[in-house]
């Protein structure tokens, strides 16, 4: 296996300094990077250990919460204020991976995990994401797990994070630091569509560090519904995050995001629009769910996701709407 050097960063500025080398990679929990390294897909010459940076703090404020990028998934899911005020985040985290992975993995690493597309992960098959220009065997091959939204002739791989789906529904922002300072990027702008550069997945530049995720306060009722091939410890076939504000029985705000269906976390804007001003009842939920797959472009093996997404949206609305 490819060998690498190691450096432990104690300050964010030191991590950024070390990352000026283009062949360096940050390692946080290591649960995705070490998989990719073992498969020969990630080949850094220097691993910069950022796991001990003091960016692991969860800071609730009146208008939102700042979740440190190095916070462990299990610590965030167990945080009493996250559970009380952002249950969508806790539910999405607990629906992902295993207890062991959640204890090691971090918020920033989760957002940057690479796709589970088997062609990408295989290491020796062609893949435009891993070896630009080599082709996309998924488009004409095995594509049951691939995207029905946002694909391009170069790549149809889905984004695998459950957390990112919840954050998309909550209009979260990612706090990014680079040598030139820090900036806040809305989650809707953070992930890129594959287009003809599927190797670029986010707006994060080489050597830039995610410091935190900012999530605005929500008065909504939440539900995260994840459909998978086994009951636990599996990535989503389809997942839906719902955040509904209901006033006097009428839907005042609806935010819906889906996983397993898009090349990035996918907001379902037409289904959202169909809910606004409607009485929050089964008929309205059915009507909105019917709009969830508008614009879908299924592939040979994943057309079932079109109907599965509608049903998952309906379930998420029923669960969220049923909460007092």
């Amino acid at each position: 296996m490819h060998a690498f050097d190691y450096a432990r960063a104690t300050e964010p500025s030191q991590a950024l300094d070390l990352a000026r080398r283009p062949d360096a990679a940050f390692i946080a929990g290591g649960t995705d990077l070490l998989q990719l390294w073992k498969a020969g897909i990630a080949r850094p010459e220097l691993m910069i250990d950022i796991s001990r940076l003091a960016l692991d703090i969860v800071k609730p404020r009146d208008d939102g919460i700042a979740i440190g990028a190095l916070a462990r998934l299990s610590d965030v899911a167990d945080h009493p204020i996250v559970q009380a005020r952002w249950p969508l985040i806790a539910e999405a985290l607990n629906a992902g991976a295993s207890a062991q992975v959640r204890n090691a993995a971090t918020i920033g690493g989760n957002l940057l995990q690479r796709t589970r597309c088997a062609y990408f992960r295989s290491g020796d098959m062609p893949c435009n994401k891993r070896a630009p220009g080599s082709g996309c065997p998924a488009i004409g091959g095995e594509n049951r797990s691939h995207a029905i939204f946002g694909g391009s002739p170069h790549c149809v791989a889905t984004h695998a994070s459950d957390l990112a789906v919840a954050l998309a529904a909550l209009d979260a922002s990612v706090r990014v630091a680079g040598p030139a300072g820090s900036r806040l990027v809305g989650i809707g702008d953070f992930y890129l569509l594959p287009g003809d550069t599927p190797q670029r997945e986010t707006v994060l530049g080489q050597g830039q560090l995610i410091c935190a995720v900012d999530v605005p306060a929500t008065a909504g009722r939440a539900a995260y519904v994840k459909v998978r091939d086994r009951a636990s410890f599996e990535f989503a076939v389809v997942s839906v995050a719902a955040d509904l504000v209901i006033d006097d029985g009428i839907v005042a705000r609806a935010r819906l995001a889906a996983g397993g269906v898009g090349t990035r976390p996918w907001r379902l804007t037409e289904a959202e629009a169909a809910l606004i001003g409607e009485r929050a009842d089964a008929a309205a939920f059915d009507k909105a769910a019917a709009q969830a797959s508008n614009g879908a472009e299924p592939l040979a093996h994943n057309a079932f996701k079109v109907e599965l997404l509608r049903r998952t949206v309906r379930r998420a609305l029923q669960v969220a709407g049923g909460k007092a």
């Binding site: 190691y6 290591g30 073992k38 992975v101 090691a104």
Partner: peptide
């Protein structure tokens, strides 16, 4: 050796993790 089976589970500072997906030096 990929985090998928749990055979390598150990406790680090009391918390269970997959030893196969952790660098020793960390």
């Amino acid at each position: 050796d990929m985090g998928a089976c749990g055979a390598c589970t150990v406790l680090v500072d009391g918390r269970r993790i997959n030893a196969c997906l952790a660098l020793a030096v960390m």
